[in-house]
Amino acid sequence: MRDTRSRLLILITPPALLLIMFFVLPMLNMATFSFRQGAFGEERHMWTLAHYREFLRNTAFQRLLGRSIAMAFETSLYCIILAYPLAYFLIFRAGERRVALLTLVLVPAWTSFLLRILAWKLILSSEGLLSGLLQAVGLLAEPKPVLLYSRAAVVVALTYSWLPFVALPIFAALERIDPHLLEAAADLGCPPWRAFLRVTLPLSLPGVVAGFFFVFIPTLGEWVTPALVGGVDGIMYGNIIQDQFVRGLNWPMGALMSLVMLLAMLVLLGLLVWLLKALHVELGDLIG
């Protein structure tokens, strides 16, 4: 018994210590930092509520946060809409080659994130591929950026980047479905589309939800993609956080903004989990 405890302590102490020092502590420290006057010199030791007042007064911040949430939702939705049929095709139509075909889809996700975004810049810019293509077919009169520096460009580039990460969990969830269940549904009178709605879709929902989180979380915190292809229209909440540390040098304000994002994220995730649970019961009631 004593042995077991000491072994456990030996195993758990180093990772726990690291996580406390460099994950829990920074979060708490960031929270207190948001009450500081400033990041440097005397201001560093002065306490204030000014940043909170400023944040509440400036509706631009709140609007931007709302817009970023909307963009994260949109991107997740597009990814799921594109990835679900893909995963479905691989599982139910591709036979033994499904793993090879899935790997082919995953490979682009393993290449440099920055360069994939850069590639989109090359595609969308005025001398880019899309502009040239549209000129060739006569839809565009002169070299002009297509979509570049807009909200849409950010969503397109991010959908592109995350698509493989959504296909993977949906593929895994569909792979786990016992084919006998679909036969049982057919046996009990379901034509294929009803079997899909009543059996395949509900059973693959965990994969869809996992895929949603894979996209939603990093997209909400995104600042690099908007900085590269978003322009003024495509700016996201993450960009103004980054701004507080790079240009504005108002670190406490940045800390507060990060804190708000963290809070928003946790609330949204909690809401979603709750919604799913409620929805699951609903689904069950509908059928029963």
């Binding site: 016992d178 006998h180 269940l181 036969e183 049982a184 549904a185 046996d187 009990l188 009178g189 379901c190 009803r194 009543r198 059996v199 509900p202 059973l203 699951h280 689904l283 069950g284 059928i287 029963g288």
Partner: peptide, 25 residues
């Protein structure tokens, strides 16, 4: 109707919902 070797009960539905599956459809 068939009874499968591994039963193929729908894991996301209750027993009553499983039994009611055919009549519901």
């Amino acid at each position: 109707n068939i009874v499968f070797q591994n039963y193929a009960l729908f894991p996301h539905l209750t027993v009553a919902q499983n039994v009611a599956f055919g009549p519901t459809i």
